[in-house]
Design a protein around this nucleic acid. Structure first.
Lengths: 198, 198, 198, 198
DNA sequence: AATGAATGAGGGTTCATTCAT
DNA sequence: GATGAATGAACCCTCATTCAT
């Protein structure tokens, strides 16, 4: 591919990511073209269809996530890796309205072809989960469907309602406590001196 | 307002509720008019704008939710009331694509006027929460923002991904375990004989 | 239907006929709207699709042709009626680029539903043909497929090349001579004093 | 012109001919470039405009037709040559969507410059005609305008409606009977045993 | 000279909103 | 007051043509 074409393709993807993050899936191709500073035709040269472009954005994003998950898979502390991954994804969702979609898809079609990015995502998350469970950091009875459901739900909400740092922390604390093995609730939502508990 | 006008307004609202529940916010005004058996103009007589109509539907729906919450507030078992409310809303979300929006709004603008329905919603949920906390069924350090965030997130995901009964149960089990006071995990996601824990 | 709607529908059809006659099937909906002095939506209110509008124009035109054919069917001189019909259609084609289409269709799907206008057209032409054959004005061995082929061909060419009166007369003279029973060539293409015949 | 440029020009023309034959005048420049295995720019280097390229194709095709006509002009039987030429062209029209256009043009501008291909075409056909008339195979009063009109009409219809062998034979029988001198109708459209004529 | 990437006018179509009936 | 016909901006997409590589 020619240098300028590659450049423009990247510009389009970038713009699409920004505009999708801002407008959600109702973003218009024209808005993306405007944002990217290219003509309409340029977009259609690289992506045959609106659907294809949006898919590409999602796939790109997903690939980065998978890479991140893989990087964390080899981390020292499996539990920490698992929760950190969860946190990072949700954190990113505030800025990127496509993550929920990715996770939604990952949770949706478990029989998708092996080459599928949804499958990759599922697998990457599953590796993190299994390791965390083996390390005793996550309850044994947790299965992928509800994990993806939780991840997707958190992303959707964070994306839509623009969770700030505090809200994200507090909300995930609850979820994480639910994910830990019974009996262990190391974190409290209260500041140390809140002191209303008996 | 004339009797027939009042009647028509009700018909429109009813139809809008059904159609919005089915199609979500992408529902078209025309679809609602058709469903209501009235002309387009009739809708615009009562609601100046699509936005206004959808707001009205959401407000109406929210009022019913508030009523439901209030009914549960006087129930015998405050903990059970709290979790039942949570469950019911999420369950309904599969069929009604309005609920996530309502909760989203409730969580969003905490400084809205006192007369606002979001405020009512917040208050109703808060009453359920406080009673459940007083009864020791919900952790003390839980605050409204994260509760509404969790509720909204679950509704959004259930609506979008059409959670089935099993997925909903399993996912909410996690969340509820996170909501309970430390140390208490009465529910397990595993069938009794799963037995893989050491 | 409301009076103004009926009026506008007629205006659209009229404009479509004019524009189609001028631009052929590549006419744009926008051009028709402009010509009719109505908005785009008005056209789509009456005709769900470009295809539907063009069909409607063709059907309307065809219905008029069928009526004309029927009127001629009861004429005194069946042979004259037959040739007059042929002539008139071709004559009209100069101004109307839809006729060839109509006849094309009539020739194409002989098994179309009974209620179809193509069928009506076929039948009307066939009645004219049979009467002319019974009167000995048209050769016995002529069948519908080639008759429609000839009619369609003449219309297409007249429409496309804008046959003037003289060209039409001379060309149809040839065709008509081919249509008459063997041995009868009453017409000559030459002016009386051309005098090259033996 | 450089050798490779000349080569490419030929390739483009060839491809254009194939694609135009297949798709008619609605063929896209891109399709031709693809078929020729050259870039879009190459086409535009040799032909300033889509229109110009299509003209060139038509001229080339016409030249071959003229050659064919010329070959037949020296044939033994002038009448047979004339009718064979007519038949062949119509036959080809089913597969080649260019022919109708060529004949249309030939019939259209009788005052075009002498060097014009339309003129050549006209002349070639006229030679066939005159010889056939001199041989007594075609009526004396037939002139070029109506002959070209008939040829063009038949091609157009054959192209558009994809005349099969039988329909073409039957239709041309009529036309040819009209073209023959008065009193001679050697061919019948009926099978020998049809026997309904007196 | 050749390539194909970029452009943008223009095509069909939808839908919130206005307004004559 | 009710109706739904009319409007036109905006949407997705195609394709002839231009121009940087």
């Amino acid at each position: 591919m020619r240098a300028d074409a590659r450049h423009n393709r990247a510009r389009v993807l970038e713009a699409a990511e920004v505009v999708l993050a801002r407008d959600g899936l109702s973003a218009s191709i024209r808005a993306i073209a405007r944002h990217a500073g290219v003509g309409l035709g340029t977009i259609y040269r690289h992506f045959p269809t609106q659907e294809a472009l949006y898919q590409a954005v999602i796939i790109e994003r997903a690939q980065r996530l998978v890479a991140e998950a893989d990087a964390l898979t080899v981390a020292d502390d499996p539990g920490r890796a698992f929760f950190e991954f969860f946190t990072r994804i949700v954190e990113n969702s505030t800025r990127n309205k496509t993550l929920a979609d990715i996770l939604t898809r990952a949770g949706l079609d478990p029989k998708a072809g092996t080459a599928d990015i949804s499958r990759d995502m599922r697998d990457a998350v599953e590796r993190l989960l299994v390791r965390a469970q083996e390390a005793g950091a996550v309850r044994e009875d947790l299965r992928m469907p509800e994990l993806l459901a939780l991840l997707g739900a958190a992303c959707m909400a964070a994306e839509r309602n623009q969770w700030d740092d505090e809200l994200r922390t507090r909300t995930l604390t609850i979820v994480f406590d639910g994910l830990r093995p019974t009996g262990r609730h190391p974190a409290s939502l209260l500041p140390p001196d809140f002191g209303s508990a008996p």
